[in-house]
Simulated scan of single mutants.
Amino acid sequence: MWSAADAARHIALPRESDDKYSRGVLGLITGSAQYPGAAVLGVEAAARTGVGMIRYLGAQRAQDLILQRRPEAVMVDGRVQAWLIGSGMDHAAREPDAERHITAALGQNVPLVLDGGALDVVHRVTTPTVITPHYRELGRLLDEPTESIAATPRDWAESAATQLGCTVLLKGHTTYVSDGTTTAAIAAAPAWLATAGAGDALGGILGALVATHSPAVLANPALLVGLAATASYVHGRAAALASDGGPLTILDLCSNVSRVVAELAAACTDAVATDTRPQC
């Protein structure tokens, strides 16, 4: 099981010499005219996880909503350290502009996070990639029965990672992350988290963590297991704080992400100070 101590090792602490580019730029190709809110939630969660800049490429309606919520987001293409693609898209009918942006993103040497309506893009990737399906989405992607995946999720996360050549974050009450060699389990979330938009926020958290570790991931794709497990831990812990035993909204969750990251950063700093975790 992935612990807070494990997660603390995967938080990129900003240095005095950092600027917005060295802290990581996350690009998002998410949302759609039909589901613009998914883009808003992904951007919100990413911003609160910690990156130097967010670039968004997507539907105009989503752009407008994002700028109302997060005016610091940039709405033009440019340099990024990672891409989050697919949240709030229909895999069977992606918009032409989205396809164009996705094709361009696949030509860049940066890590990828594929969610929702872009899981099928995994067959086209050439850089380190993590996908974030739930049981039904993984069943569709592998053409396998959903019931079988739900019955043995750990086995299927490992098998899918081997088949697809990527890291798989299989969402559920217990989430499993595997690259086919290493597997982590995370059970930090309350049952109240089973609500619309939860996956969009998880994608934003994961995208931010990958962007802040981009050079290391390119050098060692195995790091994606720890980063994805940490994203799931942060997501679940933020949900628990937002819930406090009752219902929550995903914006409530997002508002607690910074607090969770601060907890982990403090734990990492304390460990470094006592030389018990110098790799933080």
Rank of each mutant, 00 (worst) to 15 (best):
Q68C: 06
V113H: 04
A33F: 06
T249Y: 05
P71A: 11
L241S: 05
L138K: 12
A271I: 02
A188T: 12
L164A: 14
A201T: 06
A189S: 03
H173W: 14
R154Y: 10
P145C: 01
G116K: 02
A222P: 00
T249A: 06
A105D: 15
T49V: 08
I29D: 08
A262N: 13
L13M: 07
C254F: 14
G236Q: 03
E44N: 09
A229H: 09
A157P: 10
G86S: 10
A231M: 13
E144K: 01
R15W: 06
A157Y: 07
A242E: 06
D252Q: 05
A104D: 07
L26E: 03
D143L: 08
V74M: 04
R69E: 08
A188P: 09
C268I: 09
A229D: 05
A7I: 03
P221H: 15
L106K: 13
S159L: 13
V25S: 08
H213L: 11
D6V: 05
G37E: 11
L248W: 13
A45Y: 01
R100Y: 00
V210R: 06
E16Y: 12
P247H: 09
D77R: 03
A191K: 11
L13S: 04
I11N: 00
A211P: 04
P190F: 04
L227M: 01
N109L: 13
Y35L: 13
Q34Y: 04
D115W: 08
A266Q: 15
T274A: 02
D120H: 14
A92H: 13
G203M: 03
Q108V: 03
G245P: 09
D64K: 07
E158M: 07
G246N: 11
V260D: 02
L65D: 08
V40K: 00
S255G: 02
P96I: 14
P71T: 12
S148D: 04
V210W: 01
A240I: 01
H123P: 05
G180D: 06
A216G: 10
V110L: 04
V177H: 00
A271D: 02
T195K: 15
K171F: 02
L119N: 05
K171S: 00
A265T: 10
T182Y: 00
R15P: 05
P247T: 10
G226F: 04
T181K: 14
P128M: 15
G203S: 04
E16C: 07
G52W: 01
T103C: 10
P221W: 13
L57D: 05
L224M: 15
S3D: 13
T126E: 13
A208K: 09
E137M: 11
L170W: 12
P247C: 06
E44M: 08
G117S: 15
A208P: 03
D155S: 14
G58S: 06
P14C: 09
A185R: 08
R277D: 03
R48W: 02
C268N: 02
A33I: 09
R79D: 00
D77W: 10
A93C: 07
A185D: 08
R9M: 08
I250V: 15
P215C: 08
L253K: 02
G203F: 02
G86K: 05
S3L: 12
I11V: 09
I131S: 07
A216V: 05
A201R: 03
L65W: 12
A151N: 11
P145G: 09
D6R: 07
K171I: 04
T181P: 04
L13V: 09
A191H: 11
A191E: 15
L84C: 07
A267C: 10
A105G: 13
A5P: 11
R136E: 11
